[in-house]
Design a protein around this nucleic acid. Structure first.
Lengths: 260, 260
DNA sequence: CCAAAAGTGTTAAAAGTACACCCATGA
DNA sequence: TCATGGGTGTACTTTTAACACTTTTGG
């Protein structure tokens, strides 16, 4: 009996633009959007599917995921973590048996707007997904569940906004993801007491109201580690390391986007 | 560039026997033990390593893990969950590049004693591991970290003892895993208030003291789901389903141990 | 002045912690 | 009866949640 083939897929999540409901002039809290690619072969030809790619023996899994994400959507994740490995033989529905090592990624609001909106790549809101190929719908549901369970950590939430943000914006992120109302006063206190937000000193005027302080995420090393241990799940360079390498590689053909 | 080979490995954890320290007649809280197998080929010939096996295209990942665990150690897990997939090219140290889909398993105290203590399989206490092949040491550390972070859920702890247990025994499990002292009175209350323990009505005499009530784990469906969502990470039959199948398969050559 | 968001304070309920204490049992 | 663990009560601290209130801005 043959071993199955292996590939890597990525669930990319980003905060959509603020929307205005038809019957209400207030901006609703944004929803989560994710890019999908259209399949160009059987099975499920023409169906939407998760971006993915091959696994090469000379790359780490994270590098492969990063590469797949970059080449298909031209995005650069601010967060990238392994989600789960799927390998049930029944999941390929007529294709060859396939093991998918799935990562989930977060991209910032700004970056999500200059993606390549090609014919074969399109963004969908999380609650209006089309019919998907394979078991990709369940995979996305699982990724969303993971996000909702990890959102308590401030570093995750800050990955969905820009480098700097007001507490109001961050608050919107939390509400969009958890789907429930969160008391602003208590939210503010928790965030500031976590010690991971740094005041940039800037102010941001939104409407005709009082301007809000602008913060930046800044991890607090003094905190007790809730993160992975001495032997973390990392088996690859971090995103930071990849970023460094990516810049050196910038002249290679990997990046269609213009970047010095 | 070739894709790497794929295999499945399992970190099996069990509670060891109660130990008696030399300088103290009290039984210490048990430690965690895990079985390792000796490698019979290069690289790392002769070194201890995690039990593992191949991935077959007609089995789910969980089935493959279950099978690998069963054939190498003759144990039957009470808990089996995917841990992480490792695939850094550097991890094979001279071997062929290899992706390892790693599961972690818990076996009960009773079952852990009738394992096949063959020449090539041996149990080690978690804090006295030998030098291991590949990156298996980091993998074990990660599994232990996951266990320590999941132990708050009563269902995990109960998998490490028998089907029935006293609160004292369960208390020992928690202390062994977290490594710190836990107030018995508060522990008792938390466990009973969780509503997941059912009194069997039996009593168990340990020493010359008052007998303790014997409980059984019984999941409380009324509780809010902290478990995976509508689209869980399951892509395979559960352990219960595998158990059923395993009994039917008992006559096949898979199981060295005698079992009707 | 008003509306609306920024930001602060106060209080009550809940959850977690420490520890004193009584009970049951076999030796 | 004594030592030992089984089991209960209680007071105290910390965390969480609810919500009233003051401040700053543009119109």
């Amino acid at each position: 009996m043959q071993p199955p083939a292996v590939g890597v897929s990525v669930v990319i999540l980003a905060l959509g633009p603020e929307e205005t409901a038809a019957d209400c002039r207030d901006a609703m809290p944004s929803r989560l959007w994710l890019p999908l690619v259209r399949r160009v072969r059987q099975p499920f030809l023409g169906r939407w599917a998760l971006p993915g790619g091959d696994l090469r023996a000379d790359r780490s899994l994270e590098q492969s995921a990063y590469h797949a994400l970059e080449t298909t959507t031209d995005l650069h994740p601010r967060y990238l973590e392994q989600l789960y490995t799927f390998g049930d033989p029944a999941r390929s529905h007529g294709g060859l048996p396939m093991v998918s090592i799935v990562y989930w990624a977060l991209v910032g609001k700004a970056e999500a707007h200059d993606f390549t909106e090609a014919d074969n790549v399109r963004w969908f809101p999380e609650d209006e997904l089309p019919e998907l190929a394979f078991d990709h719908r369940q995979i996305i549901d699982y990724a969303l569940w993971r996000l909702r369970n990890k959102i308590e950590y401030p570093d995750i939430a800050t990955k969905l906004v820009g480098d700097t943000f007001t507490l109001r914006q961050l608050h919107h992120v939390y509400e969009a993801i958890t789907g429930e109302a969160i008391d602003v006063a208590n939210f503010r206190r928790r965030m500031l007491l976590s010690g991971e937000l740094e005041d940039t000193g800037e102010k941001l005027r939104d409407g005709r109201h009082r301007p809000a302080a602008v913060y930046r995420y800044n991890p607090d090393r003094s905190r007790v580690s809730t993160a992975p241990p001495v032997g973390p799940p990392r088996d690859a360079p971090t995103i930071e390391e990849l970023e460094g390498q990516r810049i050196e590689d910038a002249l290679s053909a990997l990046m269609p986007s213009a970047r010095a």
